[in-house]
Amino acid sequence: MNHHTAPTAELLALEQALWHADTRYDPAFQQRHFAADFFEFGRSGNIYPRADCIMQSGPPIQANLLNMQLRELAEGLIQLVYDSVVTGTDGRLQYANRSSLWSRQDDVWVLRFHQGTPYQP
């Protein structure tokens, strides 16, 4: 991958911001970075349209994001893959393989798609 065309640090920071309450529940952040056609295949198996993902409040998320890797699929289109380990409300650890598709739109990186697939280590 050409790291001059893919701003690795910026995309990693944006992905991590989705897991932090101060940005995850900030409507301005979400409106700016969720593409109009965004949707998610959740770890639960449910499909979430953009409207369901724009939230103004919620519980803090205790998550470790591991093995983050970027793949440039085309100019201005990046796939970010990683593993998440989330502490559930019951205290149990929930593991998922994650994939996000980010595209460059009007000089802003927007999230087009996200998928979480559960796994057991």
Rank of each mutant, 00 (worst) to 15 (best):
M1L: 14
N2T: 08
T5W: 02
T5R: 08
P7Q: 06
T8W: 01
T8P: 00
T8S: 03
A9W: 00
E10P: 03
L12W: 02
L12I: 07
L12T: 02
A13S: 13
A13T: 12
L14W: 02
L14T: 11
L14N: 06
E15N: 09
Q16R: 13
Q16E: 13
A17V: 04
A17G: 11
A17Y: 05
L18F: 12
W19I: 12
H20R: 14
D22Q: 15
T23F: 08
R24T: 14
Y25K: 04
Y25D: 02
Y25C: 03
P27M: 05
P27A: 05
F29D: 01
Q30T: 11
Q30V: 10
Q30E: 08
H33A: 06
H33V: 06
A35D: 06
A36N: 15
D37E: 15
E40N: 13
E40I: 13
G42I: 06
G45N: 15
N46Q: 15
I47Q: 04
Y48D: 15
P49D: 12
R50V: 03
A51I: 15
A51C: 14
D52R: 13
D52E: 13
D52N: 13
C53R: 15
C53P: 09
M55D: 09
Q56W: 10
Q56S: 11
G58I: 11
G58L: 10
P60D: 14
I61E: 10
I61V: 14
A63L: 08
N64P: 05
N64Q: 15
L65W: 04
L65P: 02
L66F: 11
N67W: 12
Q69S: 04
L70Q: 01
R71S: 13
E72Y: 02
E72R: 05
A74I: 01
E75T: 02
E75W: 03
G76K: 00
I78Y: 00
I78W: 00
Q79N: 10
Q79Y: 01
V81S: 14
Y82V: 01
S84L: 06
V85I: 15
V86Y: 00
T87I: 12
G88E: 08
G88A: 14
T89P: 03
D90Y: 06
D90S: 12
D90M: 10
G91I: 11
G91R: 07
R92D: 14
R92V: 03
A96S: 10
A96H: 05
N97G: 07
N97H: 09
R98C: 12
R98V: 05
S100M: 07
S100G: 05
L101V: 04
W102S: 01
S103I: 07
S103E: 12
R104K: 10
R104P: 00
D106Q: 14
D106M: 08
D106Y: 06
W109A: 00
W109S: 00
W109V: 00
V110T: 10
V110D: 04
R112Y: 03
F113K: 13
H114R: 07
H114I: 03
G116I: 10
T117W: 05
T117H: 02
T117D: 02
Y119H: 13
P121Y: 11
